[in-house]
């Protein structure tokens, strides 16, 4: 569990990026911060592994205030995945994945063996292990980034718009891969995005932020969809434009889901595997 208590961040140039932010991020769930650029979501994320130090308030991980912890050690036990993967271009894929274990002094052989297993976990062929990151596609690089984030077997995985720079098809693939991984690994995932669809798809808890890290609404996707807290949220999730107002029409003996414009958004099937919270658009 990660707990923010009245956290504020003022940068040296005077900008107040986050003000009086309080939130509990439950363990083994995916929490998604979503908001437009400049709302402070990345700042909040980076305060968790102390890439950015809070100005006031407290941040606790499992009841322990992170201010008292060594920054470098803290980061080594928190996975981090970012946009453009941030892989080290001068190291082979396998060394990239093994980075943190190697930093922690794990023997090279052992770290490499574990890295190869992780490639399997994220759905990459082991034959890619000896390539350099530049020799992989954007989607593959992002998978390596996820594998690297998992390498030290952290309880917490921070993801900063990890799929922001890949094309929509690969993006959808990676999103579903992440859902599968989360089902298997059960990490505390903190995910940042500006894409509300991605937030609803991945999040157990979705936190909609406004400038200054102000929480406009938080809750499960269902809660937010069914009861937007205010016009801002309604607008942000697309409810006002009728994007989320779907209705069912029976055609050719099947239930087709249509949007407010009458365009097909999907087909209704019996016994869906989803929890009912995922509304694909």
């Amino acid at each position: 569990m990660i707990e923010f208590r009245q956290v504020s961040k003022r940068f040296p140039d005077g900008t107040l990026a986050v003000e009086d932010f309080s939130l509990v991020i439950p363990s083994r769930k995916t929490t998604v911060f979503v908001g437009s650029s400049g709302c402070g979501k990345t700042t909040i994320l980076r305060m968790i592994n102390r890439m950015i130090d809070r100005t006031s308030g407290s941040i606790e991980i499992d009841g322990e205030d992170i201010v008292g912890l060594d920054k470098v050690k803290l980061r080594r036990r928190i996975g981090y995945v970012m946009q453009n993967s941030g892989l080290l271009p001068h190291r082979k894929v396998v060394d990239n994945v093994a980075t943190v274990p190697l930093l922690n002094g794990v023997a090279k052989k052992e770290a490499h063996a574990r890295a190869l297993e992780l490639l399997d976990t994220v759905g990459l062929d082991r034959s890619l292990a000896n390539r350099y990151p530049s020799q992989l596609s954007g989607g593959q690089q992002q998978r390596v980034g996820v594998a690297r984030g998992l390498a030290a077997d952290p309880n917490i995985l921070l993801m900063d718009e990890p799929f922001g720079a890949v094309d929509p098809l690969v993006r959808a693939e990676l999103q579903h891969e992440l859902i599968r991984l989360q089902r298997e690994l059960d990490k505390t995932v903190v995910f940042v995005t500006h894409d509300i669809d991605e937030a609803f798809l991945l999040g157990d808890q979705v936190v909609i932020l406004q400038k200054g890290g102000v929480i406009v609404q938080k809750g499960s996707p269902t809660e937010i969809l069914t009861a937007p807290a205010n016009d801002f949220v309604a607008d942000f999730i697309g409810a006002t434009k009728g994007k989320r107002a779907l209705h069912i029409d029976r055609r050719d003996g099947r239930d087709v889901v249509l949007d407010s414009e009458g365009r097909a958004a999907g087909v209704l099937v019996e016994g869906s595997t989803g929890t009912g919270e995922e509304v694909p658009t």
Partner: peptide
């Protein structure tokens, strides 16, 4: 990007 991700990993 690279130096930040290195920092984030605990270099």
């Amino acid at each position: 990007d690279i130096s930040q991700s290195a920092t984030a990993m605990g270099f």
